[in-house]
Simulated scan of single mutants.
Amino acid sequence: MSVTPQPAMPKCWRVESKPHKFCPGCGHGLVLKCLGEAIDELGIQDRVVFGCDIGCSLLSWDFFNCDSVQTHHGRTTPVMTGIKRANPDLICIAYMGDGGGYAIGVGGIVNAAARNEKVTVILANNTLYAMTGGQMSPTTMPGQKVETAPYGRDPEATGMPTQGPEMIAAITGAGAYVARGTMANLRQLKSYIKKALQNQIEGNGFSFVEALSACPTNWRTNAEKTWEFIEKEMPKYYKVGELKNPFEAKKEAQQNG
């Protein structure tokens, strides 16, 4: 009897914690797979400290075979900053959702970015507060229906959604790396995460990657509608691509010099 081979897990994943605890269809597992493969390819597992926030992202606390810490809500970036300053040889990764990064944690991210802290922040954007029931978050899109906006988000009443990478790109220095990827294009997302880690390895500056992520549980979507939203609707407002790339800037400077 033939046995179907199982897809290979990243080597730095902790096998004992799999299958993971995220809901079926959740994007966190795919974002974390990209992170795991990037860590493997860079050969930095023994140097990584992984910090996760409260919310759905807390379910990643035992994802990797590396040092990890679960922080208070919204405090992941400052904790990783402190660890990095105490031991600059470590590769410090802060992992969070849009609530932990753009709501309660926005002060930590903004100030770390402004100071050009040598850490890497990865933020999964699924447009709502997922673990607490699907309420409106800073990234809920205009007109999107959620628990606390059953008729759709009204920008006149609640403001426009947070454009995180655009904000970070505007306040960081030349050494920062800033990008927005999507779980709909894992090869591209992994390349962005890998560059963000390489940027920290080289000591250039703050590194930030937002990943567009799915939450079919709270979106109340089937597989077809989930992919339609993640592939077609979200990119209309959240443009995918690199906003700041010091590697390209350095290459252009060398060519023009």
Rank of each mutant, 00 (worst) to 15 (best):
L59F: 14
C52W: 01
D89C: 01
D40S: 05
G100M: 10
L42W: 06
A112Y: 14
A86H: 08
I93Y: 04
H73E: 09
D89L: 00
T77I: 14
F50W: 05
I83H: 02
G55I: 06
M96F: 02
C92T: 13
G101T: 03
R47V: 02
D40E: 00
G51Y: 01
N111K: 13
L42T: 12
C52Q: 03
L59G: 05
N87S: 09
K84A: 05
H73C: 14
D53S: 10
Y95V: 07
R75Y: 11
D67N: 09
L42K: 02
T77H: 01
C56T: 12
L42D: 00
I54V: 15
V110D: 12
H72I: 11
D62M: 05
V49D: 08
I104W: 09
A103S: 14
G108H: 12
I44V: 15
T76I: 08
I93H: 09
D89F: 09
G97Q: 03
I44C: 06
T71D: 00
Y95Q: 09
G107W: 05
V49E: 04
C92F: 06
A86W: 03
H72N: 11
A112G: 07
I39T: 01
G82K: 13
V110A: 13
A112Q: 07
A38R: 02
D67Q: 02
D98A: 06
D62I: 00
D46M: 12
D62G: 09
L90F: 09
C56I: 04
F63I: 05
S60L: 02
I39H: 03
F50Y: 15
G99F: 10
L58C: 13
C52R: 07
K84G: 07
R47C: 07
N87Q: 07
I109G: 06
S68N: 13
I109H: 07
